[in-house]
Design a protein around this nucleic acid. Structure first.
Lengths: 332, 332
DNA sequence: GTGAAAGCGCTAACAT
DNA sequence: ATGTTAGCGCTTTCAC
């Protein structure tokens, strides 16, 4: 049988409250008794039962992480960041996969609340008012990672996608490209709402390049989608000087379409992606892209949650992390 | 305040035991009372507290998953498999990242036991006797995913790496290659213990090709490592007809080294990888590789655990899943 | 078929 | 400084 606080108390010849006091350092205990208890704990290998503890404290040492897709390449990095900070403060991760469905999100929010998690990191494509309400009424520390976080009065961490996108487009323009296609890796909502698209558009405007809607294309976030989009352009003989895709996978798909059709990258067409997933530097030509600090986003989120748990002061509700333009072969 | 079983009981005018009986279907309850209780539950939105339940049942609806590296591309897929089966039976995932360190593994095993998890999926490079002992004495259903699972009397799921490796090597030989390099993505233990190496070696033997140790190289699992290994061969002017790497990333690294040195793939050197990570089909030339059914490994593991929990019969302790040789551009 | 009561392992008043 | 006790929310004997 596993040893309980009762066993320890009996063996040390003290009451269970005393044992509780030494394991939690919650109240002074005379040093000889403390030593005796500690000795018994060591001998028996006693570990406080976290479930019982959670029940009375109404808090567990668990951070719930809600994500739309575990198998996504970026999510692993994000989890890594959360985990690494979490472990420093002794928090474990309960992972919830929603497939981006709002009902699943709601379901998991309630589940996490019923499990008395210490905090929630909520990752989603688009943050919905319903989910925000569900989380906020739970009175659980939460950090949101999602496009439209600043539309709500919530804690979030993100990067300035519009600015990053603007910078990449400007960079492409400065390289002498005028006909720059934009491949958007999402068909969900209106492209006009997309930060990345806004940045692209603004950069063109600022350089007096007219927006050419025939090369602004939408697909999903797969490389296949990027491939199809580029192939379409090739078939229509509407080949741009450069393609800026709002996701690396799409960019690589597009790159492959050109390569497969004997159109040289970067000689005949430049390609730029977004996110700097591992693959970006592994393909040839290697992909110019915006490096989003996804590990850091996870780490900062976890850090924020822990600060909230400990009632420490937070500097700001919305944290914006810096990005980096990774200049590689595909645009040079 | 959140509503408890007590509240429901009071509102329905019954005892808490009756409420417990209806929510668990554990004992017959007259239908009118049952309806009354159900009605109150619906009205109040009552959800049984899983923590309290775990405490008394000494079991939670959680499957602990211990992995060496969350950010690894394959792990995401594996988690996906576990999650998808888990959710069907209402199990959640507690994720533990060990960095491959055995102390961490041990720590998490104990943590999971103290949390009364329903089962453990244990993923590791090499399974150690200590970890096996720690898990088995916990009397928790567990499934192991690791190279040397069959050295122990434990439940495991894997694929026949030796056979897969043999087949790939044979395939390369049949394509007319004799000088086939082997890049091993691990420096940890003796290469002679490696299943993949054994398969490679055996295939050469069976084709009367002498093993050339000068092209059997070890590095780590990164593409950089593959790059260095290949570069080394190039500099020594010891270029093989084909390279078989025991990991896709290493294979791609090697491929890049050849490409960067104007050695054409597959015209001048063929490349084959292992695992079929997402990138494998995205690079150009696309990579011939062994597709390991990593999602299925996760799904089957979860299914086994659930069968064990439910005391269902299991066909066999070691489950071997089929692989597929993905024939792509890099060898044709 | 239903309720009362004990107890899971722990924390936190409340006494002393 | 230490012990006694109530209680967290639930399941499960044990009576009736």
């Amino acid at each position: 049988m596993t040893v309980t606080i009762k066993d320890v108390a009996k063996m040390a010849g003290v009451s269970i409250s005393t044992v509780s006091r030494v394991i939690n350092n919650s109240k002074p205990v005379s040093s000889d008794i403390r030593d005796r208890v500690l000795k018994v704990i060591k001998e028996t290998g006693y570990v406080p039962n976290p479930v019982a503890r959670s029940l009375v404290m109404k808090k567990s040492q668990i951070i719930g992480v809600i994500v739309p897709d575990i198998s996504n390449l970026l999510i692993g990095e994000l989890l890594n960041g959360i985990e690494e900070i979490g472990r420093m403060y002794d928090y474990d991760i309960l992972l919830c996969n929603t497939y981006g469905e709002i009902e699943e999100e709601l379901k998991y929010i309630n589940l996490l609340k019923s499990k008395s998690v210490a905090g929630i990191v909520f990752v989603t494509g688009k943050i919905d008012e319903k989910t925000v309400n569900a989380i906020e009424e739970g009175n659980v520390p939460a950090v949101y990672i999602g496009k439209n976080a600043k539309d709500f009065d919530i804690y979030s961490v993100s990067i300035d996608h519009e600015k990053a996108s603007y910078e990449m487009t400007k960079y492409l323009i400065e390289k002498g490209n005028k006909k720059i296609a934009f491949f958007r890796a999402s068909i969900e909502d209106n492209i006009e709402d997309s930060e990345r698209y806004k940045g692209y558009k603004k950069a063109l405007e600022d350089s007096n390049i007219e927006l050419d809607k025939s090369i602004v294309l939408q697909g999903d976030e797969t490389s296949d989608s990027g491939y199809m989009l580029a192939k379409d352009l090739i078939e229509k003989e509407n080949i741009p000087e450069a393609v800026f895709a709002s996701s690396d996978e799409v960019a690589i798909g597009a790159m492959n379409a050109f390569i497969d059709n004997s159109i040289k990258v970067p000689e005949e067409v430049k390609i730029a992606g977004y996110d700097d997933i591992k693959i970006a530097s592994m393909v040839r030509p290697s992909l110019t892209t915006i490096k989003t600090p996804i590990y850091d986003i996870g780490a900062v989120s976890a850090r924020m949650i822990i600060k909230m748990i400990n009632k420490e002061q937070l500097d700001s509700k919305h944290i914006i992390l810096p990005y980096t333009l990774m200049n590689r072969q595909s645009t040079n």
